[in-house]
Simulated scan of single mutants.
Amino acid sequence: MILYGLKTCDTCRKALKSLGNAEFRDIRTDGLPKEVARAAHDRFGAALVNRQSTTWRGLSDAERARNPLELLADYPALMKRPLIDDAGTLYLGWGRDTQAALLE
């Protein structure tokens, strides 16, 4: 299991603590592999981009209109976190549904 997120993200730290067997990858330093980004975008669509973040609010309208995968490559903090890859099954966020699926 691989957890993609930011080391400074409280939600990512909570998820990592709960998932003792997860490998953590910081998307700011390691980046998000293109194939994972594509699969996540195919699965979650617009939900992959956190439109409530301060990074998003700081973008111009032209930047916001760019392809989401390009935006995430340039601004990793825009990704809703964490993104969890459990043997090819992707989960986004650390809500009750994700916790129920991964902690049982």
Rank of each mutant, 00 (worst) to 15 (best):
Ala47Ile: 08
Gly5Glu: 08
Arg38Cys: 03
Ser18Pro: 15
Cys12Asp: 06
Leu102Met: 14
Arg64Trp: 09
Pro33Val: 03
Gln99Arg: 15
Ala65Ser: 13
Ala100Ile: 11
Ser53Arg: 06
Leu92Gln: 10
Phe44His: 06
Lys14Glu: 13
Ser18Arg: 14
Leu32Phe: 02
His41Gly: 02
Ser60Thr: 10
Cys9Asn: 08
Val49Asn: 07
Leu3Asn: 06
Gly93Val: 05
Ile84Lys: 12
Arg13Ile: 14
Asp85Gln: 06
Ser60Gln: 00
Thr54Val: 09
Val36Lys: 08
Leu72Asp: 00
Leu6Gln: 05
Leu19Cys: 13
Arg64Asn: 08
Ala73Asn: 00
Gln52Gly: 15
Ala22Cys: 15
Leu102Trp: 14
Thr11Phe: 12
Lys34Gly: 02
Ile2Gly: 01
Ser18Cys: 12
Leu78Ser: 09
Ala101Gly: 10
Glu63Asp: 12
Leu6Ser: 04
Ile2Pro: 01
Gly5Phe: 11
Thr54Ala: 14
Leu71Ile: 03
Ala65Met: 00
Asp97Tyr: 08
Gly93Tyr: 12
Thr29Gly: 03
Lys34Thr: 03
Gly5Arg: 12
Leu103Arg: 13
Arg28Ser: 00
Leu102Ser: 12
Arg64Val: 04
Ala40Leu: 04
Gly31Asn: 00
Thr11Pro: 05
His41Arg: 03
Arg66Gly: 01
Ala39Phe: 01
Lys80Asn: 14
Glu70Lys: 09
Ala22Phe: 15
Leu72Phe: 07
Leu16Asn: 13
Glu70Ile: 06
Thr8Ala: 13
Leu92Met: 10
Met79Ala: 07
Leu32Ser: 04
Gly31Phe: 04
Arg81Ala: 06
Arg96Glu: 15
Thr54Ser: 15
Leu6Cys: 08
Gly20Glu: 13
Thr54His: 12
Lys7Thr: 14
Val49Cys: 08
Lys7Asn: 13
Gln99Glu: 13
Leu48Thr: 04
Gln99Phe: 12
Tyr4Met: 00
Pro68Asn: 06
Asn67Gln: 07
Asp86Ala: 15
Leu92Ser: 02
Asp85Ser: 10
Tyr4Ser: 01
Cys9Pro: 06
Glu70Pro: 03
Met79Thr: 02
Ala100Gly: 09
Pro68Ala: 10
Arg38Pro: 00
Pro82Thr: 07
Trp56Asp: 08
Asp61Asn: 04
Glu63Met: 01
Ala101Asp: 09
Val49Asp: 11
Lys80Pro: 03
Ser18His: 15
Leu16Pro: 14
Ala62Val: 06
Leu32Asp: 01
Glu63Leu: 00
Arg81Ile: 09
Leu103Glu: 09
Thr11Asp: 12
Thr89Trp: 11
Thr55Lys: 00
Arg43Gly: 02
Tyr4Lys: 03
Val36Thr: 12
Leu103Trp: 10
Pro76Ala: 08
Lys14Trp: 02
Thr29Tyr: 11
Arg57Leu: 10
Asp30Lys: 14
Gln99Thr: 02
Asp10Asn: 10
Leu78Ile: 06
Arg51Ser: 13
